[in-house]
């Protein structure tokens, strides 16, 4: 139950961030878009994008500094799998114009038909991949 409450609270905080970014900056809070446009060819509005990502990078460090607790990050996949997974996530989010935050959180909230389709597709493929790797191929 505790996990569910923390998940809901964390989600609400993520939602608050999305609303604030729209209210102050007029932008959709999509991490893949914010990050990919900082890679060459770099977009002209790179400053706020860098500032936002600096905040994302800083938060876990600030938390550790203040509380002394490090967030739990358990990686179960080996380096080869990480490289393949990373490449697919990078390619796929740019091809599909968004990831969990842009399509999932912001797009679903706007009832965008493109985001509803995208979210449905990546959820199904993520469920399917975990099913195949855990229960069919056995990992």
């Amino acid at each position: 139950m505790h996990d569910f409450l923390m998940a809901f609270l964390g989600g609400a905080v993520i939602g608050l961030a999305a609303v604030l970014l729209m209210a102050t900056n007029g932008s959709i809070m999509g991490i893949s878009g914010i990050a990919s446009r900082l890679l060459p060819p770099i977009s002209t509005d790179w400053l706020w994008r860098s500032a936002f990502l600096a905040g994302v990078l800083a938060a876990p460090l600030i938390m550790t500094l203040i509380t002394g607790i490090q967030p739990v990050i358990e990686i179960t996949s080996n380096v080869a799998l990480q490289l393949i997974g990373g490449l697919l996530v990078g390619l796929g989010t740019v091809m599909g114009n968004g990831c969990t935050s842009g399509h999932g959180v912001c797009g679903l909230s706007r009832l965008s038909n493109r985001s509803i389709v995208a979210t449905g597709v990546f959820m199904i493929f993520a469920f399917g991949t975990v099913y195949l790797s855990r229960h069919v191929l056995g990992a």
Binding site: G86, V89, G96, V121, F122, F125, A126, G128, T129
Partner: peptide, 23 residues
């Protein structure tokens, strides 16, 4: 819009990280 999220979903399912949490 189908192929991109499909690739993304596979990558997400292999490792468990999407772009925000990766940062």
């Amino acid at each position: 819009l189908i192929a991109g999220p499909a690739l993304f979903g596979i990558g997400w399912g292999l490792v468990g990280l999407c772009p925000g949490p990766a940062f």
